[in-house]
């Protein structure tokens, strides 16, 4: 028997096989290890996606904060440009020139508003005062509150454009303010410029306002003419109508001029 015979004989006797139980155990272990690794991979993906989501959220927040700071600058400008101290002053009626200077924006504020780009709401707010439009303190306060609420909304939601709040503010001013005299009595040159530079966004508001002002002024003028012509009864009737139409307006000065009413 040579080497090849022995090798061949050995190969023929290779009949032993590994136990089936151990085979199953080892294969199960192998599968488990694959599952564990898959789970590890999944965990890795979860952590990565969480990190990515966090980064995204933070970047959005930071971006919003940056925008917020930009808008807050704008709102600061708006706040500065609004003449808060003058809001408590009751403007005198336009026809009486003795009070024509009341309610005017001081030069400093006008300069500020000009520097800030003369925002429309500022002009809207200042224009009635400048033109000595009739308004009560309550209405002014309401308008101011509206403006403050609008500012808060702008600060809370800076993503919204500034145009819409401005229009809303303009509407509120329109509702709260009474007629504005078209006679530019007491208006300085800079105020005229401001009035001329009203943006298009408030154009429709100005048209309504003008119409309202015209009506008021016309009726008011009629009352004065009737008083001057000593037609007090008719003047009284017209004045009553005016009072009904404009209950917030202070007609005390005219009432003094009608003997019956006194």
């Amino acid at each position: 028997m040579n080497q090849k015979d022995i090798e061949k004989l050995y190969q023929k006797g290779q009949t032993e096989k590994s136990p089936v139980a151990i085979d199953n155990f080892i294969l199960a272990q192998a599968k488990n290890s694959c599952r564990k690794n898959n789970t590890t991979t999944r965990k890795w993906f979860y952590s990565l996606s969480t990190a990515a989501a966090l980064v995204l959220c933070f970047s959005i927040i930071i971006n919003l904060q940056n925008q917020n700071s930009d808008y807050s600058v704008n709102t600061e400008i708006l706040k500065k440009s609004v003449p808060r101290k003058q809001k408590t002053q009751t403007p005198a009626p336009a026809p009486f020139q003795e009070n024509k200077d009341e309610g005017l924006i001081n030069d400093e504020d006008k300069i500020k508003s000009d520097q800030a780009g003369s925002t429309p709401d500022t002009e809207l707010y200042s224009a009635p005062a400048a033109q000595s439009a009739p308004r009560t303190e309550e209405k002014i306060n309401e308008a101011d509150d509206t403006f403050l609420i609008m500012n808060e909304e702008i600060e809370e939601s800076p993503e919204e454009l500034m145009v819409e709040p401005i229009i809303e503010f303009a509407d509120s001013v329109e509702q709260n303010s009474d007629t504005i005299t078209q006679q530019s009595v007491g208006l300085s040159e800079s105020e005229k410029i401001i009035t001329e530079d009203k943006p298009k966004a408030i154009g429709r508001v100005s048209a309504k306002k003008e119409q309202k002002e015209n009506n008021f002024n016309q009726q008011f003028q009629n009352v004065i003419e009737l008083i001057e012509s000593k037609m007090f009864e008719q003047a009284t009737e017209l004045l009553i109508q005016l009072k009904q139409q404009y209950p917030d307006y202070d007609f005390s000065e005219i009432d003094k001029r009608i003997p019956d009413s006194q």
Partner: peptide, 17 residues
Amino acid sequence: NDAQAFETLYKRHKDAV
């Protein structure tokens, strides 16, 4: 993580080992 590959490998060598 190819468990099937291990099974093939194991069946190929298990008895010899």
